[in-house]
Design a protein around this nucleic acid. Structure first.
Lengths: 164, 164
DNA sequence: TATTGTTATACTCTATAACTATA
DNA sequence: TATAGTTATAGAGTATAACAATA
């Protein structure tokens, strides 16, 4: 059962631009939509290797060989602890990562195995064309500026006093 | 049972910056992390009104009173059709949106009810302090530039030829 | 026959709290 | 007592295919 009604024009709060303009002025929405449109071009590479996007982030975060603990991975990869536990187990069972002994036995440190490193390099290689395509279309210098702004916005927002 | 190993330094592919530098050069990761850190500051307002983030996006997309069809909402709000069906049903049951009759009976057009419009205005008002806080910290002019770049990146990436 | 949206289904992630082990 | 992570559990989103209704 559908309730129908004629469209009614509402008014936005003072100073808020209307329609598409208002919606596109939302920072969080703009970030989400930009990520969706760019990520769409890369997802197929991860799919082809049966890697979820969170798993790919973990692979990349570990790519230079420095072991990281679970807490750091949670933060850098934007994954909640319970999800990371599952993801690390799955990646470990696939032989992509391995545990690393650590002074503090509470910490779960992991690093890539050679197989994990090889998969990372394969994925980076395969996705390079798509990356360059976007880079060229947007302009390499502006892309650089955009990346710097995004990272600065993140650092700066995390440094703001807690708002609760 | 945990398999431990000593850390092994791997080498990144040619021309790829190492460690945190490499990871922070990933556009999609930077977009995700920037969204996470900014969204965290707004989520509590949506939570307080029992609105999920996708529901809030739908509310905002409809905020100027122009009725939209399901397909447009899916695209603008980055929600897949099966999820949107559920979301629209829930919002309709809460009295936040209502159906609008349409020439093409295949299209599911919706608009905000007065209650939905009122909730939108309440949320915008409550979150304004957090928005201004981030805006001031980052710099209003740079924020404007960032928003323009994000929207342009999205339009431009969507206009690129299909890559499959 | 193509398009729009819903339903069905399985999987993954989100989110919170409770629990374990270590410091 | 505080910290790091895991487990438990419920809920929501993701994703694909199959279906229904309309154009």
């Amino acid at each position: 059962m559908k309730t129908d009604a004629e469209p009614v024009k509402h008014s936005l709060p003072e100073g808020v631009p209307s329609g598409k303009e208002y919606y596109e002025r939302s920072l969080t929405v703009a970030l989400l939509r930009a990520r969706e449109s760019t990520m769409r071009r890369f997802k197929k590479y991860a799919d082809a290797h049966n890697l979820s996007l969170p798993q790919w982030r973990v692979l990349r975060a570990l790519a230079d060989g420095d072991p990281l603990d679970a807490g750091t991975l949670c933060q850098r990869c934007v994954i909640l602890p319970p999800s990371l536990t599952r993801i690390l187990r799955a990646m470990s069972e696939r032989g992509l990562i391995q545990g690393v002994s650590c002074q503090d036995a509470r910490r779960h440190m992991v690093t890539l195995t050679p197989a994990g490193q090889a998969l990372f390099e394969t994925l980076v290689g395969q996705s390079e064309i798509s990356r360059k395509e976007i880079d060229a279309a947007f302009g390499p210098e502006r892309m650089q500026t955009l990346l710097d702004m995004l990272n600065e916005l993140r650092d700066l927002t995390e440094a703001l006093p807690a708002s609760d």
